[in-house]
Write a protein that binds this DNA or RNA. Structure first.
Lengths: 192, 192
DNA sequence: AAGTTTATTGACTCGTCAATCAACAAAAAC
DNA sequence: GTTTTTGTTGATTGACGAGTCAATAAACTT
């Protein structure tokens, strides 16, 4: 029963199912058949649209990264001043879209994927550089030479909070995660 | 050609090979045959001693965690005062044993394993609690009520630095990783 | 020397899974 | 109304990998 114009819907359904499965099962060892089943189609169709399992994963990773990028952009658009923009970036990192349990779980697994799959590594590098340069842009006017180190620290801290969220679900909620990082930011910008 | 008393040597060789393989390949998808080959024996022997692949991984994880614990204990023994002890804990986290590339890579993968394997999760929880209580012990006398948050932050920051080390090998060396975390510690203890 | 325990492996079983293919169905184009 | 394009799947293939087993051998025991 073919409905025309199904391709984009199918692709999106597969990406969504992939993120959910990887996040829920906490592992990249999910089969194409499982993903396809969850997305309501046969595994053959998944292969038809994506060609290979790796491509499905990469598409899912792109989706996660652009979700995050969108949250950052949105938060930045509504922010005022260097201080406000920095706080916006941090808050966006713990936005309701990106900080759901399955999404964080998927993040963690994609980190691991990035160790082996060159394309995944590339994607991750792009977004990390973007974050870094976003931070630097507003950090430099505030603290000059120390900006580099603080940007590094903020990046690592955000990653670390993500890990913990993936590892102890429920143990750290959005708000307290954000507050933790914001306090670090405040201290580094204000302090001395 | 059986040498008697081979068991402990074989076990150790398998654990070492596992950490190397997981760290190098950046994935838990290493076969028992690969590990056994690297350790200089047949896959059948690996199964003979460990029973299952999961048990091999758990043994490797235990080895990593006790290596880390030993470094912390060693550093603590030689430290003076609350401040000194805290610095020792942080430095131990980036000690030469634990912060080698393959070891960090393996860490990251075991984090992922901990999402699915209950025993792995348990192991990790034990060591995280130990770190947390070590930190609290010396943080509380210095900063009182704020100790909890700072301990949380230090833990997350250490994890985050680990991730980055696994993801961008060479991009962050032992020394600068330690300095980054030590600066955070200093600021939180000193400041205000 | 016969028997027992420990070490060791090659060959095999059994399951799983990514990827392919042939076939079928409905809409669009002509 | 026939052809073409798009959507869809069940069945199959082919590879690979965890775990088992039977067999072999050296060392220890009595």
């Amino acid at each position: 029963m073919p409905k025309l114009g199904a391709e984009p819907i199918r692709r999106a359904a597969l990406v969504k199912a992939t993120i959910e499965m990887v996040g829920d099962s906490g592992s990249l060892d999910v089969t194409v058949a499982q993903i396809a089943r969850r997305a309501g189609m046969s595994s053959a169709l998944a292969h038809h649209y994506f060609g290979s399992k790796e491509q499905i994963f990469l598409a899912a990773m792109r989706a996660i990264l652009s979700l995050y990028a969108a949250e950052v952009r949105g938060a930045l658009a509504a922010a005022e001043g260097h201080r406000g923009r920095l706080r916006a970036i941090v808050r966006a990192s713990f936005g309701s879209g990106s900080f759901r349990r399955e999404v964080v779980g998927a993040w963690l697994n994609f980190y691991v994927l990035a160790q082996t799959a060159p394309e995944a590594r590339r994607l991750l590098a792009v977004y990390q550089r973007r974050l870094h340069s976003n931070l630097m842009h507003d950090l430099r006017p505030l603290i000059g030479a120390r900006a580099e180190r603080v940007a590094q620290g903020l990046g690592a801290l955000i990653d670390g909070v993500y890990i913990r969220a993936a590892l102890m679900p429920g143990h750290s909620d959005r708000r307290s995660a954000a507050v933790l990082v914001l306090e670090y930011l405040e201290r580094e910008v204000e302090g001395r």
